[in-house]
Structure formats: structure tokens, C-alpha cells
């Protein structure tokens, strides 16, 4: 199942620093939404507000509403919200103390699933979903950190899928990877679109153009332009957007 996200007048702060200003936007179901913008524009904060990771940082504050299928995320238990909205981080971060298969189902196990056959089956399922099964089927008991960078990142995506989220947030998931691994992850993200709503923060504009359906451009905490990716990259409406995507910034 996949869900849509609606953001209304979102404001976020780090201490005194106002990092998101009145952001309102909708992310469509079964679509890939890319968020682009220069460093420090608030794009990572934006997605971290969606799964309520922002507030785990000391001094961080949020105002406004985020609806997950019309359910106000900020009225719910953050732990259950985070199981419905998965996240993949910039650097691959498998748990160093766990094996490949333990990593794949770490979420389930930590959330209380004990049945070993259920866990083993789920591990296989999600590793297959990310195209890792054939590569690691003989290394399931090796540490997750022994895999290559691209494999680790796919393992992390598998780990997020195992919890069966509706939405997957990705924070520059390819920025630490080589071009071949990047392409594999992009293909994977595109496939995942069938079953999940995906929101991806990326520094790489070509990546946003390649895989996303809609693109949002954020600048200094403000949503400058948001629209179909093809339109945004062919004829942006805003001068700032144009200058940013054609590399004529500052």
C-alpha cells in the first residue's frame, strides 16, 4: 500500500535558525518526488520533518501540519509514524554488529518479531526486492558492513522495506556511491515506485530529472517552485529555479 503526503504551512527551526518557511506541498501516491536545492536550503530538514526525525535533534522545532493519507503525523505516536514512513540515508549505514540477513530484517526484529522462519522469509523477500539476493545469498551471515558501498545502500533500502512502509524518504541515497552503483539504485527506486510513494532529496539534478515525476526546488527554506519534472527542467517558471538548475547560481 502506498500513501500520499500533504504538507501544510510547515515551518522548522534549529534553535533560532529558521530553516523551513511556510512550505506547503503535496506528494502524490506511487510517484517519485525529487527535492533539489543548494546545500543548506532545508531539503533534508523537510523530509526529516515528514517522518518526525527532525525533532530528535536537540533544539529542533516544527510547526504546521503534515498529513499521511489525511492522518496528521504530528498527532500520532512518532514511533508508529516512522514504521509507516521509511528512510534511507546519505551514507549507507547498515548496523555494524549485524549480519547481512540480520540487517535486512533488523526493523522487524527490533520491533518484536521473534519467529525465525518469518524473519528468514522476509529477509529473502526484501533482499530480492532490492536485487541483492543473488549477490549475497552465500554471504548472509557476513557482517552487513562487509558488502560494497552500493550493496550496503541496497541493503539499507531492503531494511527499510522490511518494515512495510507506505512512504520511503531518501536523503541523497547515491551521493556516496560510484556511477554504476548509482544507476542500479536509480533503477531500483524507479521500480519501487509501483508500490511506494517515494520522496528523494538529491544534489544531482540529472538524477532528479531522470527518475522523478515531480520536482520541488527549495531555496533558503522556501519552496520556490514545484511541478512536473519534465516541465520544471524544460521551462522553469521561476528565474531562481532556472539559474539553479542551469548551474548559474551565486
Amino acid at each position: 500500500m502506498s500513501s500520499e503526503i500533504e504538507i501544510e504551512d510547515l515551518n522548522a527551526w534549529f534553535g533560532e535558525k529558521h530553516v523551513l518557511k511556510d512550505v506547503s506541498m503535496e506528494m502524490e501516491k506511487n510517484r517519485i518526488t525529487a527535492i533539489i536545492g543548494p546545500s543548506g536550503c532545508g531539503k533534508t530538514t523537510l523530509i526529516r520533518c515528514i517522518n518526525r526525525m527532525h525533532e530528535t535533534v536537540p533544539e529542533a522545532r516544527v510547526e504546521g501540519r503534515i498529513l499521511l493519507n489525511e492522518l496528521d503525523v504530528y498527532q500520532e505516536d512518532p514511533v508508529s509514524i516512522r514504521s509507516r514512513i521509511g528512510m534511507v540515508f546519505q551514507r549507507p549505514n547498515p548496523f555494524p554488529t549485524m549480519s547481512v540477513s540480520e540487517n535486512a530484517v533488523a526493523g522487524l526484529k527490533l520491533r518484536g518479531t521473534r519467529d525465525r522462519s518469518v524473519l528468514a522469509e522476509k529477509a529473502k523477500e526484501v533482499l530480492m526486492a532490492v536485487g541483492l539476493w543473488d549477490e549475497v545469498r552465500n554471504e548472509l551471515n557476513k557482517p552487513g558492513t562487509s558488502l560494497s558501498g552500493g550493496q550496503q545502500q541496497r541493503l539499507c533500502i531492503a531494511r527499510a522495506l522490511a518494515v512495510e512502509p507506505e512512504v520511503i524518504l531518501m536523503d541523497e541515497p547515491c551521493s556516496a556511491l560510484d556511477p554504476v552503483s548509482t544507476m542500479r539504485i536509480e533503477d531500483l527506486i524507479y521500480r519501487l515506485r509501483e508500490n511506494y510513494t517515494i520522496i528523494i532529496v538529491t544534489h544531482n539534478m540529472q538524477q532528479a530529472a531522470r527518475i522523478s515525476d515531480r520536482t520541488a526546488f527549495l531555496y533558503m527554506g522556501e519552496l520556490i517552485e514545484y511541478g512536473p519534472t519534465k516541465r520544471l527542467f524544460e521551462k522553469p517558471e521561476n528565474e531562481l529555479t532556472e539559474r539553479y538548475i542551469s548551474g548559474r547560481f551565486g
Binding site: 540529472q206 527542467f233 524544460e234 521551462k235 529555479t241 532556472e242 538548475i245 542551469s246
Partner: peptide
């Protein structure tokens, strides 16, 4: 250069 927007046009 993989141009976009106005450049591409």
C-alpha cells in the same frame, strides 16, 4: 554539459 531549461531550449 547536460543543459536544462533555457540553455537546453
Amino acid at each position: 554539459q547536460a543543459p536544462v531549461a533555457g540553455d537546453l531550449r
